[in-house]
Design a protein around this nucleic acid. Structure first.
Lengths: 215, 215
DNA sequence: CGACCTGTTGATTCTGCTCAATCAACGTGG
DNA sequence: CCACGTTGATTGAGCAGAATCAACAGGTCG
């Protein structure tokens, strides 16, 4: 369930990803829709086509195995676009993580600007390939470090990382269990690499060391 | 080192992936270049731009961690196109697995057909996301089953799979060690799911069971 | 207050890695 | 033709990292 809303973005400076600007111009975004935490944005099997622009909040893109194991392939934060798919139906599904504001971009008048869409798809591909390396060849500690460094880069880069998602989501993104996430954070804290201001606020005390852990 | 060659494709029926046809027409492919096994096609840091069409043989797309661990993000076989990248430089590298014949597609006359390129990029993204699920949430047995079923689909689908790559490559694609690959194949054989005609020829004795292992 | 949810921590198990030996296939040179 | 070295695949023994099972603490909300 999602609620139409005239919500305005609380984000002070809206940093759009490269290529997003053109797309927004060409596709005249709809009003912002607010999705409650864990609300479904689109489901596996839904007709693909419209794209989604994150005004604020965080979105997770997921897949399930037949027996219910979940893998989150990406988190999308404010300023990013998601929802493009090769087939006519979505084969992954998207959910709001923490209450996200989304604008639907419909290919209504005129045609889809393939060029800027291509740019976004290639960026997404690059990041997914990088995540493959993380899941295939890194230890749990290194995976966690990779996430923290990545979030730091995508947030203000000031060394204070906000985790909008909970442990379960982090676990399913990193391909480990949530207990392991907890233990890894504890270990990183004990090593002095991070300081935990709160459950969802982490200070990267030694950014160099963390970066070195993930290339 | 690669040798210019007037090689002709030994593949009897050349099955092009969806979207490839248009691209080939628009980009007038160059002559086939033969790459010896393990020969580099492009390196990390190389200027990106040209695309590559696999005439025959197999190509691997790789990334390395700082300490040398390798992850293969994809194998490309005859009829597929690879080499598109978001940035201006490749951040992964491509090598011939078994002696591959490659045509370079240069965006020479006219501009790149963004629409068909987008189709390919999205297909690549979909497959990479699916592979993420395999690496993040599947056991070694399931990963091997996934590869066998995938190769079977992309080859003739007749239940007799040819492995053009060696154990080391399989391991780095599946995110396990080559010893584990060996053991898994042994286990699948003992369970009667596969029969090993040779080191590189595997008969899928129970395709249903193998498919069930990976959704 | 009690039920519930999230996160943390502990004890134990197990999957897959590491280290290592063996074997088969091949090519080379005497 | 055969001894030798090399390379890839298989197999074994022991270990370690992460999963599983389980208990518990803190916070929120009815």
């Amino acid at each position: 369930m999602h609620i139409q809303s005239g919500f305005r973005a609380p984000a002070p400076q809206q940093v759009k990803s490269a290529g997003v600007g053109q797309l927004l111009n060409a596709m005249q975004p709809a009003a912002v829709t607010l999705y409650a935490p864990d609300a479904e944005i689109y489901a596996q099997g839904d007709k693909a086509g419209p794209l989604y622009y994150v005004e604020f909040g965080t979105v997770r893109i997921c897949r399930l195995t037949a027996d219910g194991r979940r893998q989150i392939s990406a988190f999308h934060i404010a300023g990013e676009v998601f929802g493009f798919e090769a087939a006519s139906e979505h084969d992954s599904f998207a959910e709001s993580v923490d209450g996200a504001g989304i604008r639907v971009l419909r290919p209504s008048c005129g045609e889809i600007p393939a060029q800027s869409l291509l740019t976004l798809a290639l960026q997404s591909l690059t990041r997914t390939q990088h995540h493959l390396l993380v899941l295939g060849r890194r230890t749990a500690n290194e995976r966690m470090a990779a996430l923290l460094v990545d979030l730091n880069d995508r947030q203000n880069g000031a060394g204070l990382v906000h985790l909008p998602m909970q442990r379960n989501d982090i676990a399913d993104y990193l391909g480990v269990t949530f207990e392991t996430v907890s233990r890894i954070l504890r270990a990183l804290k004990d090593q002095g690499l991070i300081r935990m201001k709160s459950v969802s606020e982490i200070e990267l005390a030694d950014l160099d060391a963390l970066s070195a852990m993930c290339d």
